[in-house]
Design a protein around this nucleic acid. Structure first.
Length: 471
RNA sequence: GCCCCCAUCGUCCAGUGGCCUAGGACGCCGCCCUUUCAAGGCGGUAACACGGGUUCGAAUCCCGUUGGGGGUGCCA
């Protein structure tokens, strides 16, 4: 039996955690959970210039929000520079690396001059430079042979060493680069599976070459996940696309829905059932079944998942989950409770809950009447709307105040206002419109009778009269 | 430019040589239900990029073309 797998999620704190990273996190987590292994967390903060420490909290917070934990203590690369420096010195001592004093500008200029491919040309390879104030340490890539690996999702991938440029191991400010720190840590942490985004495929031969040069005898299994793309089929970018996990949380998405949706990007369960408990996904998931082509992050499908998850909540949980999104205080919860189940099956996002019951919370609906709804639901009906409004005021003034009684009263009103179908039955479909718009300000919303029951007789009658007065 | 990868409905997944007149999901359209809107039910729209092979047989294997993506940083 093979040793239990150790995976790692290794984000860098240069931006808020985004859905692409979250997907990589999820897949790592799934492999670890499924095979009884561990998933460690490593903060890749080697770039002191771009590093934003305050974002590390966001990463922790979002992983927690998603409900995906990690094992052990998070490893911060900024605490481990000695390790990387020692590795770099070993490579230098063995002639596998050398100092280079070319500035990025010089490298670029020479590339332009040659008219050849961009990238470093090995200018300092044999200059035997000593370490100086502005020297970077570069890895001496082999001139011959090839480096390849067997990717768990893409199969055999091979690169010719001659095509690999001599890349930087230590910056001139002495800090290690991702390439160096990444491999040193994976070896040190005993990582068995490197599961990451496709953007890392090209860096993998460099990773392997460093490991070999270090004589580590270490070689993890690799799995490169297809990238997540936007509608233009470009890799999701934090700048172009609003894809931060925190953003989705704030818009009212449930973490369970987000995680479930993310699992369907680049993978699908054999039985085709997409919406299902995480525990089942853990059982079903196979890295070898991950798709090889980019996946479009479809917010509309995410919304569908979210709506399904919201509807599946039990009543109390629904109110609990919606509460953080009430910006108008306790009043919202008070008016929501009586019709919570009716609202629950009508929202896709938790942020839609409060607006849906706004008309119940407000003292007056004046100024909150939707123009198009008024036109379509009231004005267009002309005299019939007037008749309905008048009849509704009469009937509702004296009936009992509960949903059933209100329904009966409104039916009676509709009948007296002439809303009767050819077969003699009441045409509530049309008759309810003027009442709904007059009372709720909109032509769509929760069921009317229940809403009026919550609103109360006084406010209902006030609003009906007010609407009547405007005609 | 060079390197690497990818290619089934608009989108996400099924499909691993015959079960495919290609299946499911989201979206969209229609009908039903119905006090609006949702939800639910029923039905529909829509794809194997192209060209060559291999094979009795190809969405599935091979080659090429085209298209797309990723990388090409003293970012990760």
């Amino acid at each position: 039996m093979s040793p239990s797998p150790r995976l790692r999620f290794a984000p860098s704190p240069t931006g808020y955690l985004h859905v692409g990273s979250a997907r990589a996190l999820l897949f790592n987590w799934l492999v670890a959970r499924r095979d009884g292994g561990e998933m460690l967390l490593r903060i890749e903060d080697t770039d002191v210039e771009r590093n934003r420490p305050e974002l590390i909290d966001n990463i922790f917070e979002m992983i927690e929000w998603l409900g995906l934990g990690w094992d052990g203590k998070p490893v911060h690369q900024s605490d481990r520079f000695d390790l990387y420096t020692a590795a770099a010195e070993k490579l230098l001592a063995e002639g596998r690396a050398y100092w280079c004093d070319c500035t990025p500008e010089q490298v670029q200029a020479r590339a332009r001059e040659r008219g050849g491919p961009p990238g470093y040309d090995g200018f300092c390879r044999d200059r035997d430079l000593e370490r100086g104030p502005s020297t970077a340490l570069r890895f001496r890539t082999p001139d011959e042979g090839s480096t390849g690996f067997d990717d768990l999702v893409r199969g055999q991938v091979t690169f010719e060493n001659a095509k690999l440029e001599d890349f930087v191991l230590l910056r001139s400010n002495g800090t290690p680069t991702f390439l160096l720190a990444n491999i040193v840590d994976d070896a040190d942490m005993g990582i068995t599976h490197v599961v990451r985004g496709e953007e890392h495929v090209n860096g993998t031969p460099k990773y392997i070459l460093i490991a070999e040069a270090l004589g580590l005898g270490y070689r993890p299994a690799f799995a490169h996940l297809p990238v997540l793309v936007n509608e233009q089929r470009k890799k999701l970018s934090k700048r172009r696309d609003s894809v931060s996990v925190a953003g989705f949380r704030d818009e009212g998405y449930l973490p369970e829905a987000m995680v479930n949706y993310l699992a369907t990007l680049g993978w699908g369960p054999p039985d085709g059932v997409e919406i299902r408990p995480l525990a089942e996904i853990v059982e079903l998931f196979r890295l070898s079944e991950v798709t090889q082509s980019p996946a479009f992050f479809d917010v509309r499908k995410l919304q569908h998942f979210n709506a399904e998850y919201i509807r599946a909540l039990d009543g109390e949980a629904f109110v609990d989950r919606a509460r953080p999104f009430f910006v108008h205080g306790d009043g919202t919860e008070e008016v929501l409770r009586p019709i919570a189940s009716l609202v629950q099956e009508r929202v896709r996002l938790l942020t839609e809950v409060e607006p849906m019951v706004d008309f119940l919370r407000l003292e007056s609906i004046d100024g909150a009447v939707d123009e198009a709804s008024w036109e379509k639901g009231v004005v267009k009906l002309g005299e019939r709307a007037v008749a309905m409004l008048d009849a509704a005021v009469v009937e509702l003034a004296s009936c009992n105040w509960n949903a059933d009684a209100i329904e009966a009263a409104l039916e009676a009103a509709a009948r007296s206002a002439g809303f009767v179908k050819p077969d003699g039955t009441v045409d509530m479909r049309r008759a309810q419109a003027p009442v709904r718009v007059a009372v709720t300000g909109r032509s769509v919303g929760p069921p009317l009778y229940e809403s009026l029951a919550v609103l109360g007789r006084e406010r209902t009658l006030d609003r009906l009269r007010a609407a009547r007065g405007k005609l």
